[in-house]
Computed example of a mutant assay.
Amino acid sequence: MLVVRPITPQDYAALYTCAVESGYGFTSLPVDESLLRRRIARAQEAFAREHVSEPGEEGYLFVMEDTETGEIAGCSGIEAAVGLTDAFYHYRLGKVVHHSKELDVYNALETLTLCNDYTGVSELCTLFLREPFRKNQNGRVLSRFRMLFMAEFAERFSQFAIAEMRGISDENGASPFWGWLEKHFFNMDFNQADYLTGIGEKAFVAELMPQFPLYVKMLEPEAQAVIGKVHDNTRPALRMLENEGFRFRGYIDIFDAGPTVEVEVANIKSVRASQRKPVRIADVPSDNTADVILCSTRVADFRAGRATIQEHPDHIVISPETADQLRLQDGDHARFVAL
């Protein structure tokens, strides 16, 4: 069974493998040992905090494990509130109107303005599923279980959530959008800038990024063409989030111009549709069953996975195997949503 659980120090090698396999442009998984180990330690601290009344700097990082082989299939995370310590940058798409009634000239021009508008919101991040496991809706489970976690522990997260989508870059990691910025404002390639941001070295953004709005028409056509567009490998993740209610509101990544999508947490489809009921452990009948994403309701010992259940008005029936893998006992509460 594939089970999602909190990351542990023993998962470092697997997390490093995920970082290598994720390739260029995956900012939250840089190939950097000290940063990855810090992320694991930070996640352990977050899961260990029993009493949290409001979102802070907690970073929750999970892995999906094949319990038969012990192999790690992928990872995903949630940041409770971004930008509380380090500035969290985006470009905001806007418009400026140049109008002269006397000359009968009217121009509405798109602009890009550097901003920190998403400071304090929660972020779904670090979603990566390794190639051999990209089947049987495993990616859907690895993404959507986070929404059950947020529904169960709502006090730990902001009212709003975002997800940054990887923008367009080529097989060598070159970004057309960054290429324009590099040419005029920076002296480093996209991979170096992306890596520095990933390891937390963000001071250069404030120091070198243009502080005044940019006219989109001033950018080279190749840079204009990728604004708000996603990398081909990211399209399935974007479609999944859009089905959950996430929408693009005009905010893009400052390096590759990939879109950031947002939603009010209470309006996420999986949050609204999820239910919380006591479990009964028994053989699940073959009829009247449902295929669901099921999770426990304890933070430190959190477990989630795909399961077949039988639902009743006041409880659900799960198999002994499912109970064992998700560490649920008879009478425990579990949260679930249809797969």
Rank of each mutant, 00 (worst) to 15 (best):
K101D: 15
T113M: 00
G59V: 05
Q44Y: 01
R49C: 08
P132S: 10
L93N: 02
D66I: 03
C75N: 07
A46T: 04
A43C: 14
P132R: 08
A73P: 04
Y89K: 03
T126K: 04
E68L: 06
C75I: 08
T111H: 09
G94A: 06
N136A: 07
D117M: 03
S122G: 04
C125K: 07
E131C: 03
H90D: 14
A81P: 01
T69Y: 12
N116T: 11
A80C: 09
R49K: 15
E45R: 13
T85G: 12
V52I: 12
L61P: 12
A43N: 15
M64G: 11
E131G: 03
R134K: 14
A108E: 14
F62S: 06
C75T: 14
K135G: 00
I72M: 00
E110D: 14
L103S: 13
A87E: 11
R130L: 15
Y106Q: 14
T126W: 05
F128N: 04
R49Q: 15
C115F: 06
G70A: 01
A46Q: 06
E102N: 15
T67C: 02
L93R: 13
L112H: 05
K101L: 12
E102Y: 10
F88N: 08
E71S: 01
N136T: 05
I72L: 04
